[in-house]
Nucleic acid binder design. Structure first.
Lengths: 345, 345
DNA sequence: CTGAAAGCGCTTACAG
DNA sequence: CTGAAAGCGCTTACAG
């Protein structure tokens, strides 16, 4: 079944059928619309989108891009589709785009070449970069794509000032400011910060929030209280053990990922500390897992759903009008109080 | 840059360029190949896949389908891209398909119409149904698609005997047989089974494993020990409370999802039981979260990665040859021992 | 309100 | 080993 077949059955030209399918009703009489639609229904016709894409030079496909990393140890590669942050975003993205007539193609890319090939292969209408570091890693490539093709691109948590790209972040500084403040307000004085933030702009912002809270309350920012571990479960365990073993009498800590906080709780326990009795812990992300632990984790919520929704609103507007007024938005952040902290007051 | 442009620059016909791109080297001289390739490189040419798709009537796109459910309470809909089981599978699927020259389009579908429109819209080369219940829910639709278009389709955990569809399951019966046996071997006598298995073939298989283990060891299958709660965290909490409140002196239980087991631990604790001292718990799935709880969860691993890999092997073979010898495979299952059970011996 | 023609960028027989 | 032509299924000016 093609346009041509439908046109013949209906006794009209292909162009007329095309017009009714595309809702250009001003150009077709009501009777014709009626007739054509009934034939379409009867034969269960569905347009071939490759053909349409070829003529209108736009596919209505949006590429959702995730980085592809090579693992040094065993030669395999990892993508990030199973990262909980990434996969909740994909759910929202798919829904919003589907509701607006777009299709989503997912792809892990290793290099800038991979990326640009994909974009041009399919005449992609836009691209969404799903992992924070991507914004920086592919910065040149992204700027090139945007410049050449005027292609809508959305980034998350990137440091870009290119007004052509959409960028949605959260208030990372405030996140750790809030968690640190929360502990200070409950009488904690020796508060650790756990993350290898150096060289990572996003984590550095969070660190700045911690530092600001410590300094403004006169506690100061003791370098010994900074534990440089990366935000994974395993590293968290190591950090937790280190804290338990330290002579600093740390009573509370803030970190930059729930997974890490969960590891820290485990490591601290293995080191003999009770949570929260001996050590208060605050995570970051408010992932579902943060409610599955014992004690349930107090954490910073960056409202991932809203983040994705905001980005999709902007993307759809750019797709529609070619322009968005405010392409860079920063979302607020809040503390979710659960059970992993103790007040010393 | 199109084929035509490249052909002109190289001073050959479009067809020759096409042949070198598609590796039909027998039809082109080495010198020509050399020349054409260098021009392609120089101008950074990338073929338009919509056009190719249109002529060869195959897109190299594989649809990854997830169900779209309407929530009764608030009118919104949920897809399952953020389900940990689904998202780990997507990671593997994307990798295998990408490595073999395919593209993956993800889509949540509500009805059989949604589905068939998508398939035909894009001339999809194959479809993967990612959520267990899908196999049954869209059974007619799937059979129709397969019959009409001879389209490779892969299902997981489905009850189908259609030899045209690929179906990868795990040994569900054995899963709960193993977990139940494990408790029996450690002296447990009152062992509960938690799941609303009735009407659900997959969960019924797991229940049968539990029952077989109980009966073969002479403990029998006491209906009072069956707790009919669905496999979610919230329902798990309710089940845990119910078990804590019951007069049955249950000392151990098996269930059909880690999330549910985690809820059960929480509910049981709220009901005053210590895990595993008063109650041993075994989960199912071996999700990452099962290592984040306290105590870490003993559980049944169904090796999700292998499941997805096996399915992709079969799919790729079917895509290549149109046929697979053994389209229905059942994978083995194993118990992963951690900390959530206690031996009574 | 409707139609005939050209064209999007590719591949596939068919000739040479 | 290479090429000219037709065609995949659609949409877009251009005419009427």
């Amino acid at each position: 079944m093609t346009l041509k077949d439908i046109a013949e059955k209906a006794g009209v030209s292909m162009m007329t059928v095309s017009n009714v399918i595309n809702g250009k009703h001003s150009r077709v009489s009501a009777a014709t619309i009626e007739k054509v639609n009934s034939i379409i229904k009867e034969y269960n016709y569905v347009p071939n989108l490759s053909a349409r894409s070829l003529t209108i030079k736009s596919s209505h496909i949006i590429g959702v891009i995730v980085p592809l990393d090579d693992k040094e140890d065993n030669g395999t590669s990892v993508s990030y589709f199973d990262n909980p942050y990434v996969s909740s975003m994909i759910g929202v993205i798919e829904r919003e785009l589907r509701d607006n007539g777009y299709f989503v193609m997912i792809r892990a890319v290793r290099s800038q070449d991979d990326l640009s090939i994909l974009m041009r292969n399919w005449n992609v209408d836009g691209a969404i970069f799903l992992y924070p570091r991507l914004g920086d890693r592919f910065e040149d490539s992204i700027n090139a794509i945007v410049a050449e093709n005027h292609l809508p691109v959305v980034l998350f948590d990137a440091r870009t000032d290119n007004p052509e790209v959409i960028n949605v972040c959260s208030d990372d500084r405030k996140g750790c400011y809030l968690s640190t403040r929360y502990l200070i307000n409950r009488g904690h004085k020796k508060i650790a910060f756990v993350a290898n933030y150096e060289g990572n702009p996003l984590l550095t912002d969070r660190f700045e929030g911690y530092r600001a809270a410590m300094e403004e309350s006169g506690l100061g920012c003791d370098p010994d209280c900074i534990f440089s571990y990366s935000p994974s479960y395993e590293e968290g365990v190591a950090a937790g053990k280190a804290i338990a073993a330290s002579a600093l009498k740390i009573t509370g800590l803030v970190t930059t990922a729930d997974i890490c906080a969960i590891g820290i709780m485990e490591g601290a326990r293995l080191g003999g500390l009770r949570i929260p009795t001996d050590l208060s812990v605050i995570g970051y992300d408010n992932l579902a897992v943060s409610t599955y632990t014992t004690p349930k984790l107090t954490t910073i919520s960056q409202n991932v759903i809203k983040k994705a929704e905001t980005a999709m609103e902007l993307l759809l507007e750019k797709l529609r009008t070619g322009y968005v007024e405010q392409p860079h938005v920063q979302l607020d952040v809040e503390l979710v109080e659960r059970q992993s902290t103790l007040s010393l007051l």
